[in-house]
Amino acid sequence: MTKYILRRIFLLIPTLIGMSLLIFMMVRLLPGDIVDALVGLDPTITPQAKAELRHSFGLDDPIPVQYVRWVVEIFQGNLGQSFRTRQAITSTLVQALPITLELAFLAMIFSVIVAIPLGVLSALRRNSQIDFWARVSGMLGLAFPNFWLATMFLLITSLVFHWVPPVIWISPRVDLFGNLQQMFLPALALSVQLMAVEMRMTRASVLEILRQDYIRTARAKGLQEMDVLFRHALKNAFIPVITVIGIQLGGLMGGSVIIEQIFGLPGVGWFLLQGIYNRDYPVVQVTALFLATVFILMNLIVDLTYAYLDPRIHYA
């Protein structure tokens, strides 16, 4: 197991290098001069001042030099500074990360709480009313854009309950209840798509498992249906569900960008969008790399859980 974990971590290195190269090149090869965009059409700026500005950002170095410097600085814990605000990105990211992680975590919890029981029930009562409605909502859940759902949630709470979530972010350490109240709607909006995917997968997987011989054996030896389900069927049925959750995490990262924007939560996604609206290249490249890294690390955790749960997977 240890060997397997080490090998998986080792394999992350080429992926991370490839990703950082991709993001770096994408930001460099795009049209327009950063400095021109920054100073705008201000005629008082002399070409000399522009050159100095370019030099201060290190933009007059060859591109490979810039890349190596960027990577070295990341390893030193320096993520660079924003072109606009001149603030260190590291400190902003440290503040933003817990918000995004909390959002993703809550969305995951919500989706699992709803989707897994519903999927199991739907499979057990196949072709029943419950099954029919569960499948219909599964289809609808995939089609609803999360930003529309978020808007509808806000509309409903403000029209029916005359309540809107606070605009300024509340830290859970200051006021846990207030924080959860604020995070509830965004996490719910983010979780719907995940819910639909997990529900469909759970249903399919349970149906598949219930057809297996060992389930028939378990029933034949006289086990109660509940025992068959909980001791034999579900454990195996959840393995593919976990894989699907891992794949969906990417959607969660992308979705959080929009949801954070709608609810004004200053998370990593919100920060990325600010960087994009301001054409603030250092912010964009670091936050994009960061979100992608979080995504592959979460995926690694899912893969390891999967290997742990499924004894058929060899760690060699």
Binding site: P14, T15, G18, M19, L22, I23, M26, V27, L30, P31, G32, L249, G250, G251, L252, M253, G254, G255, V257, I258, G269, L272, L273, I276, Y277, R279, V284, A288, L291, A292, F295, I296
Partner: peptide
């Protein structure tokens, strides 16, 4: 295929936001 794997390692919408945002 390694290049494809790296593209897969990106959350799709994040990549789309970055490309669309940077291209204008």
């Amino acid at each position: 295929m390694r290049a494809v794997d790296i593209m897969f390692a990106f959350p799709g919408l994040v990549l789309a936001i970055v490309i669309a945002g940077m291209l204008g």
